Amino acid sequence: MLNSKQVQELFEKEAILINDRDVIPQYAVEKLFGKAAMEFAKSFQDYKNLGYWSEYYIDGGSYKLAFLTYKGFRIAATYSNIDETRNKTSQEVIA
């Protein structure tokens, strides 16, 4: 599990520049936190405002990169923390 300082450091380490902001590509989020965390962050509907996530197209739209903003990255990290807590709780119940 990660605290806010660790999440910020991880974001700064993994971020890439898209337009005028640093973001985390979908593939990196999935590697760090899993696909479910990425999908959870993308479920937040602040899409047009670039609050949580967006997509960037190049080559006439033939290549699309989905990414999370820092705000969205924190949501993915939160999902991962809670999921890890759920897994620990489940293991305690089994034991």
Rank of each mutant, 00 (worst) to 15 (best):
Y56N: 08
R74L: 12
A77S: 05
S80R: 11
D46S: 14
F44G: 05
I75A: 11
K35G: 09
E14H: 03
T78I: 02
Y56L: 03
P25W: 01
N19Y: 09
T85M: 13
M1L: 08
S90C: 07
T78S: 05
Q91L: 15
S4A: 13
R74Y: 07
A76V: 12
D46H: 10
V7R: 00
E12W: 08
F40P: 02
Y57S: 11
Y57I: 07
S43H: 03
A15I: 05
D59T: 09
L50V: 04
Q8D: 11
M38G: 01
I82S: 07
T69N: 02
D22Q: 11
Q8W: 15
A15E: 12
Y57A: 10
G60I: 07
T89W: 08
E84P: 04
N49A: 15
A66K: 07
Q6R: 09
R21T: 12
S90T: 13
N19A: 08
K64R: 06
T69F: 01
K64M: 05
A77D: 02
K64G: 03
F33Y: 11
Q45N: 14
R21L: 12
D22H: 11
F67N: 00
K35C: 10
A37S: 11
F11Y: 06
G51E: 03
M1S: 09
I75D: 01
K64Q: 05
R86E: 12
L10S: 03
S90V: 13
A36Q: 13
Q6T: 04
N81V: 10
Q45I: 06
Y47Q: 06
I82P: 07
G61K: 04
V29S: 04
E84N: 14
V93S: 06
P25V: 00
D59A: 14
K42C: 13
Q91I: 14
A76T: 14
Y56I: 14
I94E: 11
K42N: 10
T89V: 15
R74E: 14
I82L: 15
A37L: 04
F44D: 10
N3D: 15
K31E: 01
L68S: 00
A37H: 05
F40L: 08
L68W: 00
I94L: 13
K31M: 00
Y27A: 13
G72F: 02
A77C: 02
N3W: 15
L17N: 13
D20T: 13
K5N: 09
Y56S: 11
I94Y: 12
N81H: 06
E14R: 03
F33D: 03
Y56T: 14
V29N: 05
Q45M: 09
G34C: 04
V93C: 06
N49T: 14
K71G: 10
I94D: 09
G61C: 05
V29A: 10
Y63T: 06
G72W: 01
S4P: 04
K48N: 13
V29L: 07
L17G: 07
A15T: 14
G61I: 05
D46Q: 10
Q6F: 04
K71W: 10
F11L: 02
I94F: 12
E30A: 01
F67T: 01
E9G: 06
D59M: 08
K13R: 15
A95V: 13
L50N: 10
A41S: 11
V7Q: 01
Y52L: 09
